[in-house]
């Protein structure tokens, strides 16, 4: 059962695809409170890839390392840090844990190449990210809203999308 740790993956990628891997900067997630204990920052243990080269790295994972199975694309909106982070999760068909690639995009212009032409399985993940977070995947064949209706404007899963309701009253602790 293949098992490739994140450090080994970074080393392999640094050797074969120089410049594709970035050093992850710590994420603050929440703005530091004025008093009380500091929540501490978060440094991801996964491989951070330059967004423009995500297709190249993903194809390397598929063709050279045999991780053919793209399981998930998860978007996280780190509002305080001003980035969207996309987590790509690849598996080997023989089993074993995942290889995770992450890419960070600036919130002002979230745009990166699409994986759908190479992995048809990325289709709905990318449409979902476009619908709820407004991330543009260049080269996607059918980048349309998937959950909301086409006439709708705005990206409801962003942390700064305005919301009203009982759950949002008195949210401040």
């Amino acid at each position: 059962m293949p098992h490739l740790r994140a450090e080994d993956l970074r080393e392999i990628l640094g050797r074969d695809l120089p410049g594709a891997v970035q050093d992850p900067s710590p994420l603050q997630i929440v703005p530091p409170p004025s008093h009380g204990p500091q929540p501490g920052s978060f440094v991801t243990g996964d491989t951070l890839v330059e967004p423009g080269r995500i297709v190249e790295v993903a194809l390397y994972l598929r063709d050279s390392l045999g991780y053919t199975y793209l399981s998930d694309i998860a978007v996280v909106d780190y509002l305080a840090d001003g980035v969207f982070e996309l987590g790509y999760r690849f598996y080997h068909v023989d089993g074993g844990p995942a290889l995770v690639l992450k890419a960070r995009l600036p919130r002002e212009s979230p745009e990166l190449p699409s994986l759908t032409p190479d992995w048809p399985g990325a289709n709905f993940h990318e449409r979902e990210a476009f619908d709820l977070y407004g991330i543009t995947f260049v080269g996607h064949p059918f980048l349309r809203r998937i959950y909301m209706w086409d006439e709708f404007e705005g990206f409801p899963m962003r942390k700064d999308f305005p919301k009203q309701g009982d759950k949002y009253i008195g949210e401040e602790e």
Binding site: V30, F42, S71, D72, A74, D77
Partner: peptide
Amino acid sequence: FYLVSDGSTKPYRYKVR
């Protein structure tokens, strides 16, 4: 399930695959 915690009692991000 993909969860991101910001150190509080509520998940910062909760993604279902």
